[in-house]
Design a binder for these strands. Structure first.
Length: 574
RNA sequence: UGGGGUGUCGCCAAGUGGUAAGGCACAAGGUUUUGAUCCUUGCAUUCGUUGGUUCGAAUCCAGCCACCCCAGCCA
């Protein structure tokens, strides 16, 4: 790790760029990144990619990473989102540098820099309405037309700009625009809006302002003020890079530096640079803030933290661990080609982490009663079974065994398919961690439904192989008298299509997988798994990894299946 | 029809003129008191395509093709 960052050439275009910048001493060897969410929604796995990238880069190169809320639009931002975003980042295991930053805390400086641009005749107050501005902007293949206010005297713009701030004008009546080039082939350079009037309270600055700076104007300056060296963002901002650079070039270098956190320190100062990478997309998943919101509002899911949601809150509740998400982001890599990552990669990442760390337990989803004929009525064994097959240091838990137990209905078959290794009439099977049993008799009700099995125990098989024969099958079980009733929730992919690309909310709802949630009541769990010291992530053997959900109203414990175990039975030669 | 990008194995992704890393998926074996895990092996004579430069090209040049982004006073 260390060597990779310092000596040999790192892999990937961003790391190589940073290595180059460090080698050339561009920023005095500093690496300072930032994660700049807008607090207008909940974080999802796509944000995690950016979080991991920015924070890991800083960590690897001995740099810093800020958390900055990019809050320049009072209409959609909220303190609740700030809180949940901070929480999610901490949960992922990252710690930002110093205090949380807010673009809104730079409003006063932003205002002063805007006055500077006006004085330099690089910005002007425009009286075109939003509709007119759009018409004047031209089209992709047709140049725009200069605003009639473009040559307004800077003094007049300065006065108007001050009065905009004072609240003398209505929303949309005036705007501050950069004076660049209405014929530029890059639409972003056709005199972009820098400030718009919005008589709206801001969750941070309250009623202090009635006009707000735009993203393009704010982001680059915020980066500069925080002395960010590498400003990473997604591909769709590529066209904005010339504007990012333009703004920082127009502002007087010394004033920008003086206002920055570096102040007049001796360290070299060069403006931050924007670099773009492809955003994350995952098969059978949709990561559009707007559509995720619709999903919640239209009732497609139960909320932002519904375990089927790709939000960090949802994935956390589902049972995804921070390490699994970080490993996944690492495995996916960072490039500039737009790709659709196979959801199997995400599933692999959780399985990998949970296989190593989740204690094992036994839970029967659909119980079938089994009476052990030769097991004495009042007898109750407490079998010590390892919590993990490979990690003895995790200890053993005590699993009760009595005369009556339950096994999984599907682990018994009257007419077993070829290759069936579980219990059949007259056959033997191993009870995990306990004895080998033989099915002696099958009982049915009037409808022919199997109600109960009578089996005999081979007491000479505890911790050892049976004499003279091989028993291949091993099944999970639970003691009837001691089992705890729990509810299980099994999940499947939320969307039917591999690449859901809805164009409207109707398509979002139409694309949902109707079988994405299966809730099973009355499952039987071994008692040790419900104790506090057992934790809340488990592998229910042979069934999957489960995560204890927050307390259910009824009082019945609920476990969400994070992911099933890999199941290769029935494939190939099995 | 303008501008900006991207095209390497089914899915991601290294590679930056010297003869195609790795992961996921898949397949075949082995171990196994989880049909799990683990282990071993296999899996691109070829890098969107056509030409060119070169002793030598995924890497350089030119043309073509496909796909993505941009006309919010959203970010």
């Amino acid at each position: 790790m260390q060597n990779e960052a310092e000596s040999s050439t790192p892999s990937g275009f961003i790391r190589q760029m940073i290595a180059r910048d460090i080698a050339s001493g561009k920023h005095g060897g500093r690496v300072h990144t930032r994660f700049p969410p807008e607090p207008n929604g909940y974080l999802h796995i796509g944000h995690a990619k950016s979080i991991c990238l920015n924070f890991s880069l800083a960590e690897e190169y001995g740099g810093l990473c800020n958390l900055r809320f990019d809050d320049t639009n009072p209409l959609r931002e909220d303190q609740d989102f700030v809180d949940s975003i901070k929480e999610n980042i901490r949960w992922l295991g990252f710690r930002w540098h110093g205090e949380v930053r807010y673009s809104s805390s730079y409003f006063e400086q932003l205002y002063e820099f805007a006055r500077q641009l006006i004085r330099k005749d690089r910005a002007y107050v425009c009286a075109l309405s939003p509709d007119q501005a759009r018409e004047y902007r031209g089209a992709l293949t047709a140049p725009g037309v200069d605003s009639p206010w473009r040559e307004r005297d800077p003094e007049e713009s300065l006065d108007l700009f001050a009065r905009m701030r004072q609240g003398e004008f209505a929303d949309g009546e005036l705007s501050l625009r950069a004076k660049i080039d209405m014929a530029a082939p890059n639409m972003n350079l056709r005199d972009p809006i820098l400030y718009r009037i919005r008589h709206a309270a801001h969750y941070q600055t309250g009623a202090d302002w009635c006009m707000y700076p735009t993203y393009d104007y704010t982001h680059c300056i915020s980066d500069a003020l925080e002395n960010i060296t590498h400003s990473l963002c997604t591909l769709e901002f590529e066209d904005h890079r010339p504007l990012y650079d333009w703004i920082l070039q127009q502002i007087d270098r010394d004033s920008l530096r003086a206002a920055s956190e570096l102040g007049d320190a001796a360290a070299p100062w060069v403006p931050p640079e924007q670099t773009e990478f492809a955003k994350l997309r995952i098969s059978y998943t949709m990561l559009g803030k707007r559509f995720l919101r619709a999903l919640v509002e239209e009732g497609g899911v139960a909320g932002w933290d519904d375990p089927r949601m790709p939000t960090l809150a949802g994935m956390r509740r589902r049972g995804y661990t921070p390490a699994s998400i970080r490993n996944f982001c690492e495995a996916v890599g960072v490039a500039r080609s737009e790709s659709l990552v196979d959801i199997a990669m995400l599933e692999h990442a959780v399985r990998e982490d949970l296989d190593r760390n989740a204690p094992r337990a036994m839970c029967v989803l659909r119980p079938l009663k089994v009476v052990l004929r030769n097991f004495d009525e009042g007898r109750r064994d407490m079998l010590p079974i390892p919590c993990h097959p490979k990690r003895g240091e995790l200890g053993r838990r005590k699993v009760p065994l009595g005369r009556e137990i339950c096994i999984e209905r599907e682990d018994f078959a009257v007419a077993p398919p070829p290759g069936f290794k579980r219990l059949v009439a007259g056959g033997e099977v191993r009870l995990r961690g306990a004895y080998v049993i033989r099915c002696e008799e099958v009982f049915r009700d009037a409808a022919g439904e199997i109600t109960e099995l009578h089996c005999s125990v081979d007491f000479d098989t505890l911790g050892k192989r049976p004499e003279g024969r091989k028993v291949k099958g091993v099944i999970h079980w639970v003691s009837l008298a001691a089992a705890e009733k729990v509810t299980l929730r099994l999940y499947d992919r939320l969307f039917v299509e591999e690449n859901p690309a809805p164009k409207n909310i109707g398509e979002v709802m139409a694309g949902l997988n109707p079988d994405s949630l299966e809730q099973i009541e009355g499952c039987l769990l071994e008692p040790a798994a419900l104790t506090a010291e057992a934790g809340d992530h488990f592998q229910f053997e042979r069934v999957g990894y489960f995560h204890r959900d927050r307390e259910a109203e009824s009082g019945t414990p609920v476990f969400n299946r994070t992911i099933s175990l890999r199941d290769t039975w029935g494939r190939g030669s099995g």
